[in-house]
Design a binder for these strands. Structure first.
Length: 795
DNA sequence: GAGCACTGC
């Protein structure tokens, strides 16, 4: 051990320097041992970090509390009284190197004590200690998301019960808390790290796609997206790294949460040591309790301001017009306070913003004594972040001092219902509609439909008016309709989605029977059948419904099965570099920007990248141009702007591509390209795509010009007008079927019927086909019989 | 000749 620099001599000298009180930073170190250290709190001795907490402190005659702050606490027998004593004690037992609590910690603790959930700590520990599963209901402002995981930490004491993982590393058994959204996982983790007086990414961390802010040896509390925990479960069916799992926002019923609930119900039965807490905001607790074997309920009140609700006396024939009228009415008649209006989509919102602005300006001009200035701000997810930020700008000031107040109106999609919170909203206008995803298994199409919202949604919307002070909510439907027409809860996502991906994941999670799996809400059998059928055609499942080796690998890619398949086969076509790009570009939002005022310029810019054989190749061109022309971030944003491309989406594509490439490497899948000069360069790429998407092909109708019919379901479809395909080939492969004003196929590429027969012979067996396609396929097969000899001749 | 509700891996 070194004798020149002991921990005790190091600290005082450092302190002098930091204070700036030393005359010169280049002053030589004081000769010999420094004078004895001044009285200070117990110090941790870094050479003793292998010892239990209480022995790690350097004994000093002045220090009074050298005992373990956790002395007497038995994991999972901890009481509220004990936990409070530690929280209010001197030493932070959770920091990796124990140290006294900071002043900041004490300030935050004082505020935490005001949270409704804090008052129920004793009740929480009673239920937590004696039950494996519990259900918690806490409305907005109860503090459940930040406090409950901490309460669990005080009971599990995860840092004192480390275990060796398969890699031999000694790590704490973690507490996981899942969130449906990335931003929530990040921001809550940050907040809780502050509350516990530890560093983010060390003791308390978060894991979201593309970002892992945790440390294997030290992290014991981890916030994560629900999808991320599901990914982890695919390779660790018992979730052995966790001692407790908290599913937050379970009422949102995301696909990932629903699958996790079914899975955890099984895991909990296999692992009696695993605790599960399901947290929800709604009153539908009974359903959760019943599902989880009558688990006990802890109910915590919320903390929001009252919101007064108004209904229209008669049904409104035109909700858009009614919404605009209501905004102007509020503006003229109500006290100061901002307005939030819920509409269904981008076009509707932009339209409403224009109309509100025009009418409000006129009102302010003709009647300046009655109406202040109005600032109208649109909000939807595809809006660039800078414009989204406008919702946080303050309301305009009155035009004249003491005149009628200025007001801000935010016209938003559902994004303001859960994902984004705007402070200062006092009035909410709720027409009662939103766009919702629906899945039709019969024609295998997901589409968006404007539908009435649920009561739970309506309550959530109203609640947005009461975040900072009492508010008002104007519902543009009658009270009778509220009572009789609105359903209690929105249908969970699992009932509204194509489940191809989910079924693959479930198999990979070790679920044998997908039909008898204990779903909280079982999807339609037909939806599962459609998924099984697709996965069987893609050779991910064998005929007995078991995962094939190919299926095992497909499940590891964060992609739809079709995309995963084309990526995995791409090395066989010598084009995996290119397919990686295409898969990434298809996984991010549209890269083409088309402002209403500059459509022609935008279309011209897009034409520069167009590939005549199809949109997939156009996407490849865009990515190549982006990488070639944008060596660094500063030039990238300008180049994207000039070319009417979304920089955000392209950066995201780059991220996704890197992640996919790492997965390819993990499975030793070759990264290769056909030389660009080779005439097979594009053919190889199109063939690889066909291997994944042979089930999404349309055939040109004999009669109508430019019209197509899908092969399996005989749906009449039109190529989407945005397509770069410059001709109408006999067969086109499409990435998406979109149901709007008409049936469109979007992102399309020409394919040859010969390829379809070669790469998907079972699917294109003429015996299963009808009409013209059947004849074409028969013709090719007949020719092939002859053709095989001519091929030999050529070789 | 049209649209992208919202998330997530």
């Amino acid at each position: 051990m070194s004798t020149t620099e002991t921990p005790s001599s190091d600290r005082p000298s450092k302190r002098t320097k930091m204070d700036g009180s030393s005359s010169s930073s280049s002053a030589p170190p004081p000769p010999g041992p420094p004078p004895g250290p001044p009285p200070q709190p117990p110090k941790e001795n870094p050479y003793l970090s292998h010892l239990p907490v209480e022995q790690r402190f350097t004994s000093s005659s002045n220090s009074t509390s050298t005992s373990d702050p956790l002395a007497g606490l038995i994991p999972r027998k901890v009481t509220g009284k004990q936990a409070r004593a530690v929280m209010e004690g001197d030493i932070n037992p959770f920091s990796s190197t124990p140290k006294p609590f900071s002043q900041k910690y004490r300030d935050i603790l004082a505020k935490r004590k005001d949270l409704p959930v804090y008052a129920q700590m004793d009740e929480f520990y009673e239920k937590f200690n004696s039950n494996q599963i519990m259900v918690m209901i806490g409305e907005t402002g109860s503090g459940k998301t930040t406090q409950i995981p901490q309460f669990v930490a005080y009971s599990d004491l995860p840092h004192t019960t480390k275990q060796k993982g398969p890699d031999g590393i000694l790590a704490p058994r973690m507490i996981a808390c899942t969130q449906p959204r990335r931003v929530a996982a990040m921001s809550v983790a940050k907040r809780v790290a502050d509350e516990m007086d530890v560093s983010l990414g060390k003791e308390v961390g978060y894991t979201i796609r593309f970002e892992d802010a945790t440390e294997r040896r030290t992290t014991f509390l981890k916030y994560m997206t629900d999808g991320m925990l599901l990914r982890e479960a695919m390779n660790d069916h018992n979730l052995e790294r966790y001692s407790a799992i908290i599913l937050d926002e379970a009422h949102e019923r995301t696909l990932a949460t629903d699958i996790l609930m079914g899975l955890l119900k099984e895991v909990v039965a296999r692992r009696p040591d695993l605790k599960l807490i399901v947290m929800s905001a709604t009153l539908d607790a009974l359903k959760f309790q019943k599902y989880f074997n009558n688990a006990p309920l802890l109910k915590v009140p919320g903390r929001t301001f009252p919101v007064e609700t108004f209904y229209t006396p008669e049904p409104e024939p035109d909700y858009l017009e009614a919404a605009i009228r209501t905004v102007l009415m509020i503006h003229q008649a109500e006290d100061a306070g901002d307005i939030l209006v819920f509409l269904t989509g981008e076009e509707e919102i932009e339209d409403a913003c224009k109309k509100i602005k025009a009418e409000a300006d006129e009102l302010a001009n003709t009647n300046p004594d009655l109406c202040g200035p109005l600032k109208v701000v649109p909000l939807y997810s595809s809006l660039p972040p800078a414009q989204q930020q406008r919702i946080f700008e303050p309301a305009p000031a009155p035009l004249t001092e003491g005149g009628p107040p200025g007001r801000k109106v935010v016209v938003s999609t559902n994004i303001a219902e859960t994902s984004l919170t705007i402070d200062g909203i006092v009035y909410v206008v709720d027409p009662g509609f939103s766009k919702q995803k629906v899945y039709n298994p019969r024609i295998r199409v997901e589409s968006l439909l404007v539908s009435p919202i649920s009561k739970a949604s309506a309550q959530q919307r109203a609640g947005r008016a009461g975040r900072t002070r009492p508010g008002k909510c104007f519902r543009l439907y009658t009270e009778k309709d509220w009572a009789n027409e609105l359903i209690e809860q929105s249908y969970p996502e699992i009932l509204r989605s194509n489940l191809a991906n989910t079924v693959l994941e479930l198999k990979k999670l070790g679920i044998d029977n997908l039909v008898t799996f204990d779903y909280m809400d079982p999807p339609a059998p037909e939806t599962i059948m459609r998924a099984l059928e697709l996965l069987n055609y893609l050779a991910a499942f064998d005929d007995d419904g078991n995962l094939t080796p190919l299926g095992e690998i497909m499940a590891e890619f964060p992609l739809d099965p079709q995309l995963a398949k084309m990526l995995i086969v791409s090395p066989e076509f010598k084009c995996s570099n290119e397919i990686l790009t295409i898969a990434a570009m298809l996984s991010v939002p549209n890269v083409f920007v088309r402002p209403n005022s500059q459509r022609q310029q935008a279309d011209a810019a897009k034409a520069e990248f167009s590939h005549p054989d199809g949109d997939h190749l156009t996407l490849l061109n865009v990515y190549h141009a982006y990488k070639t022309n944008c060596p660094d971030a500063s030039t990238a944003s300008q180049w994207c702007w000039q070319n009417y491309l979304s920089h955000r989406a392209l950066m995201q594509a780059d991220n996704v591509r890197n992640q996919l490439q790492r997965t390819m490497e993990r499975f030793d899948l070759d990264l290769c390209s056909t030389p660009f000069e080779d005439k097979r360069y594009y053919i190889n790429i199109r063939q690889a795509i066909a291997c994944g998407f042979f089930m999404q092909v349309a055939h040109k109708e004999g009669g109508t010009k430019g019209g197509y019919t899908t092969i399996k379901d005989n749906q009449v479809v039109s190529p989407h007008p945005s397509s770069s395909l410059d001709h109408t080939p006999e067969f086109v492969l499409y990435h998406e079927f979109v149901l709007t004003t008409r049936n469109y196929i979007r992102t399309i590429t020409e394919v040859r019927p010969e390829w379809l027969l070669e790469f998907a012979p079972a699917y294109y067996n003429p015996n299963n086909m009808e009409g013209e396609v059947k004849r074409i396929m028969q013709g090719i097969l007949a020719k092939k019989g002859v053709g095989s000899s001519s091929k030999k001749k050529r070789v």
